[in-house]
Nucleic acid binder design. Structure first.
Lengths: 216, 216
DNA sequence: TTTGGGCCATTGTGATCACAAAGGCCCGTA
DNA sequence: TACGGGCCTTTGTGATCACAATGGCCCAAA
């Protein structure tokens, strides 16, 4: 079905390309809560017909990244405070476990990578780049959790990030943070020390820190 | 778009009807791991065209209920032992939390309902009805977790059940169990006593009990 | 000025079709 | 009998179309 003139070009399916693009846009906070999408609009933007646009939208709806109005209109979800609290609790639950599983496998190379990413995070903070901050912050977490060797758990954590995406942008716009991510430093320190309780606490704090402000 | 001659008939969309039917079939273990599906076959079975069949299949693939072969063929997933262990760990993590949240709201009416469901579970066990057992067992858990008032967490737990569906059937066929669900009794007892540590332990045991056998 | 009704453009849904690739089957050959 | 090549059927993908319902907009009346 898919043709590949060269082994290098992966020739991704149209619906998958659209899905990935929309997913990144949502997860990184490039859509505001309530912002609407149309199938024909998506199709036109990506140069495809309605069919792949529909499939990608359906998939994102299934993952909770988009909300489906009663009459089938799709839009970025506007989360209630209850839902935000619940998603924050889920992040804490899942990511503490992921970090804990990654700890015994975290060698120096990983910690160096995390520190490098963390510098980029700090740079995004100083530049007041909300989208860049969200993206690099998630990259920090994902890099750590990949070491846990728990793909199903990581996938679920990512769908939680996806659901929080549109709200995160609003959140980080609200709180005027100029300080570099202190909790990330605690995470790195706990990793270095092999301190599991400290790591769990640091991850929990980092994950629930901002979200509590918005929801509470 | 959808017309309703009477307010009672919900006039469900075709893709949603197909999705729900396939989802129940998978979650309850009515499909064997590796069993294949075709879009045209689904369409013919439910009297719809390929379009709604494709949407429902795509959604189920997104939720991990079906696995997508390299060339787009869909089938019930054959899980590796590593993945089964991971999903069992996820069940433990999520369901212990859900049970813990349900505990303060669990009144006598709920406990009565759980006991009634548990009798049906025992009946299914004695009848050697694997599908019936899986269905009522999940109903037991869902009834409890609904009290947690945590819809996002419950939704994620259900997608984990969905991923385990095809393997559960094989599992409960393997272990020759005739005893009624002892762990369910422990759960009910802990609920009655308001014993949170006991409840967490009982749920964790119940959830990981069988799955450890298959994966280990 | 505000409100209500009706018309029209917009939008999602599902069916159908053309196409390419993958899988399976059969037959011939070693 | 076992192995391999070639053909044909099956199957997923994406485009297009007809249709119905929703939503918005404008104008008229109070």
């Amino acid at each position: 079905m898919m043709l590949a003139s060269k082994p290098s070009d992966a020739a991704p399916a149209a619906h998958d390309r659209v899905y990935r693009a929309l997913r990144a846009r949502i997860m990184h906070g490039e859509m505001s809560p309530g912002e609407a999408l149309t199938l024909r609009g998506i199709g036109k933007e990506f140069g495809v017909s309605m069919t792949p646009a529909r499939e990608s939208v359906r998939r994102l709806v299934a993952e909770g990244a988009l909300s489906l109005s009663s009459s089938g209109r799709v839009a970025a979800p506007e989360l209630t405070n209850e839902r935000i609290e619940e998603l924050a609790a889920l992040r804490a639950l899942l990511e503490v476990e992921l970090a804990s599983r990654a700890l015994p496998r975290a060698h120096m190379a990983l910690i160096d990578r995390l520190q490098a990413i963390n510098m980029t995070v700090a740079e995004m903070v100083s530049k007041r780049d909300a989208v860049g901050y969200i993206r690099t912050n998630l990259e920090f977490h994902r890099t750590l959790y990949l070491r846990a060797q728990a793909p199903a758990m990581l996938a679920i954590a990512e769908t939680v990030w996806l659901q929080l995406g549109p709200t995160m942008r609003a959140l980080y716009g609200r709180l005027r943070r100029t300080e570099p991510p202190q909790n990330h430093r605690l995470i790195i320190a706990a990793l270095k020390a092999g301190d599991e309780p400290g790591l769990r606490l640091a991850v929990r704090s980092d994950v629930t820190h901002g979200l509590r402000l918005l929801a509470g």
